[in-house]
């Protein structure tokens, strides 16, 4: 289950005439959608942090100082304190932005690459629809975290394997979404016209059908990044996540939780970082859906 799995019928705002000009472009509509804009700002900021992290970190995120472990926030210039190895937590969280965004992006790319072609083929060719969709239904019958857990148990632990696991587990949702859109367009006039002009199937699918799936897929992807980050964090919690000393937030939270009662800052700040990022993607996804998805615009 995901925010992107269903299409919510309507959003609240009724356009004010004064703002009509802005509405003409999707960007304008996004600007009008204030929450979505906040989401976009959060994520652009995080992207900037991820890119500039090495220049922004006040301390070396990997430099241990075992004699100054678990300093409270603010002590000795450590804004968010130090962790169980005496490393500066603020620097680690800044650098961790990279990993969380990387996890989210990779998960979506994997599920996209696997799910979209499968869905397109199922939607376009009647003969392929049955087998592919049975497989998709079958995969969807397993809770996503269980699928991911089995994949990680098979491939071994580590950030990369977690990304593959969550990506694989999210692929069926993309397949189903793509299939739905392709199916609805297969018999559309312009498609049958192109077909009768002699275009081959691959060309029809790629040039004429897939572009129409872009809007719902972008919305879906945004939500999937959010759940991907959450699932990866859950796998870290079960001991299957990123390997030390990687400052991935899920892993930081997971190891820091041992100190929850003595040094709560070790698990609270990475948790907040995950929360803000996931929130950013979710509200951006909501905003994008309002803006991009013609089925829900009035």
């Amino acid at each position: 289950m995901l925010p992107g799995d269903t299409v919510s019928p309507e959003r609240s705002d009724v356009a004010a005439p004064a703002r009509r000009a802005l509405q003409r472009t999707w960007f304008g509509r996004l600007l009008r959608n204030r929450l979505g804009l906040i989401g976009a700002i959060i994520l652009v900021t995080e992207l900037a942090i991820a890119v500039l992290a090495p220049a922004l970190t006040p301390f070396d995120p990997f430099e241990q100082d075992l004699r100054n472990r678990m300093l409270p926030p603010g002590a000795d210039g450590h804004l968010l304190g130090t962790d169980e190895f005496g490393r500066d937590q603020f620097s680690r969280i800044l650098l961790g932005t990279r990993y969380s965004l990387l996890v989210g992006a990779t998960v979506v790319i994997i599920s996209f690459v696997l799910g979209v072609p499968a869905g397109a083929i199922a939607g376009y060719y009647r003969w392929a629809d049955g087998p592919i969709m049975r497989l998709v239904d079958l995969m969807l019958a397993f809770p996503q975290i269980l699928l991911a857990l089995i994949v990680v148990a098979t491939l071994g632990t580590g950030l990369f394997n977690v990304m593959i696991a969550v990506g694989l587990a999210s692929a069926p949702a993309f397949a189903r979404l793509t299939r739905g859109v392709v199916l609805s367009l297969r018999e559309a006039d312009y498609v049958t016209a192109t077909q009768s002009l002699g275009s081959n199937d691959g060309r029809v699918i790629v040039r004429h059908i897939l572009p129409n799936t872009a809007a719902p897929l972008i919305v879906q992807s945004t939500f999937r990044v959010a759940t991907g980050i959450l699932s990866a964090a859950a796998l870290s919690f079960l001991g299957l996540g990123a390997e030390p000393p990687t400052p991935e937030w899920g892993a930081m939270l997971s190891t820091g939780r041992t100190y929850l009662f003595t040094s709560p800052h070790l698990s609270i700040y990475p948790g907040i970082a995950i929360f803000i990022t996931v929130l950013g993607f979710n509200i951006l996804g909501d905003g994008l859906r309002d803006v991009l998805d013609p089925r829900i615009r009035r």
Partner: peptide, 30 residues
């Protein structure tokens, strides 16, 4: 193994060996 103490020992060793030029990577198994 995925036990908190093992992970802490390994991570501290990783930090110390880095100082003498030995690059340790950690792999966790159940």
């Amino acid at each position: 193994a995925d036990r908190p103490e093992h992970a802490r020992i390994a991570e501290a060793v990783q930090g110390q060996l880095a100082d003498i030029g030995v690059n340790v990577s950690i792999r966790t198994l159940d």
